[in-house]
């Protein structure tokens, strides 16, 4: 018992010092404002921002916007239709029942657990893209969350240290090295994807620990269904509102998928790591808060 506490304190010290150092330094008192004067692009830094701007406003011109090629539209729409029925008549009702029975903190923990388990995929792909900081982040998160976070059930790396998960997968790695989507693909059950991302997904299973857990095929599928059910139970009816509000849900989902993946590959950096107010506030010091309870 004593040993447990000692190691806990050591780890705590580690979390406080190592993880948040970056965050504390970055905790800005005010929001940075950047003004880019027209025509001034000498500085490399300046150029970065100017590029960002040009890219961000690139959709200004009046042209046809094709975000992703879709030669198999008929086939895709068929699968989309099947998935839609599956969602409304099977998957969602199950998720709802599950949501009703299992309390929210438990479902959040299940989500955390699966996410922690998939660290190898994110870490390896960060490494493949030579993003060493992100690789370090994933390793750090894995160590903290597997220990203090009790086998990944909790996410103290985020809630305590403010070190957030880096979403990486082999589809993004391929994109990083210049591979385009190929074309849009709707996969049965799994939903929107593309030639590139489907390939990526297959490669990623090599790094999925569940793949090696000596499960029968049905068990493996079962665990994955459970994972999906759990994450849907935490979702606030996103798909329902898309279906309800858009003129053509198929087109809406396709456009959103293409844009989202492009942003992930391009890694638009929105998150300047900031911590609100003092670091030693209630959120950070109350163990119940950082265990996500």
């Amino acid at each position: 018992m004593l040993r447990f506490f000692t190691s806990l304190i050591l780890l705590l010290a580690f979390t406080f010092v190592a993880g948040p150092l970056q965050a504390v330094e970055l905790a800005a008192t005010d929001v940075p404002t950047v003004i880019i004067p027209a025509g001034q692009q000498n500085d490399q830094f300046d150029e970065d921002f100017a590029d960002d701007f040009d890219e961000d406003f690139a959709d200004e011109g009046s042209f046809d916007e094709i975000l992703i090629a879709d030669p198999l539209e008929g086939f895709n729409r068929g699968i989309f239709w099947v998935n839609d029925k599956l969602y409304f008549y099977l998957v969602k009702p199950v998720a709802k029942g599950y949501r009703f029975i299992v309390p929210r903190p438990a479902r959040v923990s299940v989500g955390n657990f699966f996410s922690n388990l998939l660290t190898p995929i994110r870490a390896a792909n960060a490494l493949l893209q030579l993003k060493f900081t992100d690789f370090g982040t994933e390793i750090y998160r894995f160590i903290v969350n597997s220990t203090i976070g009790i086998a990944g059930l909790f996410d103290p790396a985020t809630s305590l240290a403010g070190v957030e998960k880096v979403e990486e997968d082999f589809g993004q790695t391929l994109g990083y090295y210049g591979a385009g989507h190929g074309f849009y693909l709707v996969l049965p059950v799994l939903g929107p994807s593309s030639l590139r991302d489907t390939t990526g997904g297959l490669v990623d299973t090599v790094l999925d620990p569940l793949w090696y857990a000596d499960l029968a095929t049905m068990e493996y599928l079962g665990v994955n269904m459970f994972k999906v059910t759990n994450s849907l139970s935490l979702d606030k009816d996103t798909y329902e509102s898309i279906v309800r509000d858009s003129l053509d849900p198929y087109l809406f989902v396709r456009a959103a998928y293409a844009q989202r993946r492009a942003a992930q590959v391009g890694k638009v950096d929105y998150s300047i790591l900031t911590i609100d107010g003092s670091f030693f506030n209630e959120n950070n010091l109350n163990p119940f808060k950082w265990l996500g309870m």
Binding site: V31, P32, T33, V34, I35, I36, A38, F49, A50, D52, F53, D56, F57, V108, E164, L234, Y270, S271, I272, T274, D276, G292
Partner: peptide
């Protein structure tokens, strides 16, 4: 949270983050 504001001519981009208990959306 307001992260960053960039202005260029008559255009501006404001980066924010919506933060609630269980999700963060840029």
């Amino acid at each position: 949270q307001y992260l960053k504001q960039r202005v260029k001519g008559n255009k501006a981009i404001i980066d924010t983050k919506f933060v609630s208990e269980d999700l963060e959306i840029p």
